[in-house]
Write a protein that binds this DNA or RNA. Structure first.
Lengths: 220, 220
DNA sequence: CGCCTAATGTACGAACTAGTACGTTAGCTA
DNA sequence: TAGCTAACGTACTAGTTCGTACATTAGGCG
């Protein structure tokens, strides 16, 4: 019985800067993803936090900077995942398919991130442009794709004349659209692109599409 | 000398309900596309109009309803374009490629529409769901795609097991992503997917991709 | 040609919202 | 253990923003 009559605020750790910061970022991520930059409410974010609005300004400076911080952390998660890519031991076809599947899985697993990207595009990527951190992220995946493409072309398997950036765009397009636009697509066409029982269908479809494109007979 | 000393407001037509309504929709489309639903300002929309804020409430009832009306009109433009599709006289491969190109062109020509769709997805398509008009639009393009696929499969040209909705998703994905995410993509990877001198490249890429997928050798 | 209503304009308010001034305290360090 | 500072809380404000009450008029119609 250590704290029966103690004031409520002594439950849990107090004065933990890292935890407070992280908690604000967690809540803000959800709130920004839910309502957009303008739609999100600083008061609401604060209310969903163990701490107060004051802390948001203390740690981040303001709403816009908080959004930038949210974006920075969200992108760092992807960069992390990409750095753990390990597909170059596979043959080029299998490697590309595996890469596409991992991209597919990552998009599906992080719908909030997808929404943040949509929101950031509404704002014409101004926060990314203004962020030192995000400016110099690069993309570990691009290096991997580049090497797989080289290898596949050398062996004659890949006939398409694309570079890594374009192939990345192609793969991301499908994965992104499926998650980002699932609501309007569902409402208009009556099909839920993210229905669990359709997952394998679309995952395979993406791989088939990319491989078919890369290996198509171009002698005609 | 008919109007030298007359008040300024006599210039141009007065009391033109249709024109006022249409002008509000025009301005609102741009403003919503620019700033999102929450970010758009009713006062700003009114200010960019020949009329006043009062008229927005008079004709549309409120901000949300105005957004819905904007969406309805934007979607009707597409439905219109789709109804004018005329590709079924072509052989299946050419027809699909042409359809993909028209989709590509339409997305490129209507970036504001793309932004509205992104925004509507942030709001989980609630306005579409609540709109009688948008609920029963359907898509003329789907019928066309369906018939082309049938024809292509019958002749043995198309080997892929997809239906019209999935193929539509595939084509739209690429077109949508290229326009919607051009800002973040450009900022992160240093490539402008909508650069004019790359237009033909991506347009061809899309067609190649779809055709390769549909006609891929699946005997292996 | 006067009346009636759709269409329009003005002025305002209630509620919300980002941001801040000021005060407090936990807990490390000397 | 005293003191100092990073961390935190409260209460408030200035400005914004959606929406509306009220007043006005154009112009079709009987």
């Amino acid at each position: 019985m250590t704290s029966v009559e103690e004031p409520a605020h002594t439950g849990g750790r107090i004065r933990d800067a890292a935890r407070t910061r992280a908690e604000i970022l967690d809540v803000a991520t959800k709130e920004f993803a839910r309502a957009g930059l303008a739609g999100a409410r600083v008061d609401e974010i604060a209310a969903l936090t163990r701490t107060t609005k004051r802390m948001i300004y203390y740690y981040f400076g303001g709403k816009e900077q908080l959004f930038t911080a949210v974006l920075e952390r969200a992108y760092s998660v992807i960069r992390q995942a990409e750095q753990e890519l390990d597909v170059e031991h596979l043959d080029p076809v299998a490697a590309i398919r595996r890469l596409a599947e991992l991209t597919f899985d990552h998009h599906e697993a992080h719908p909030d991130f997808i929404r943040l990207v949509s929101i950031e595009n509404i704002h014409e990527a101004g926060h990314i442009a203004a962020s030192e951190q995000l400016g110099r992220i690069g993309s570990p995946a691009l290096e991997v794709i580049h090497r797989i493409l080289e290898s596949g072309r050398k062996s004659g398997l890949f006939t398409a004349d694309v570079d890594a950036v374009d192939l990345h765009a192609m793969i991301s397009s499908f994965c992104f659209f499926r998650v980002a636009n699932r609501h309007t697509f569902g409402a208009l066409f009556g099909r839920d692109l993210t229905a669990p029982d359709q997952r394998e269908h679309y995952r395979t479809m993406l791989g088939d599409m990319v491989i078919a494109y890369l290996t198509a007979d171009r002698t005609a």
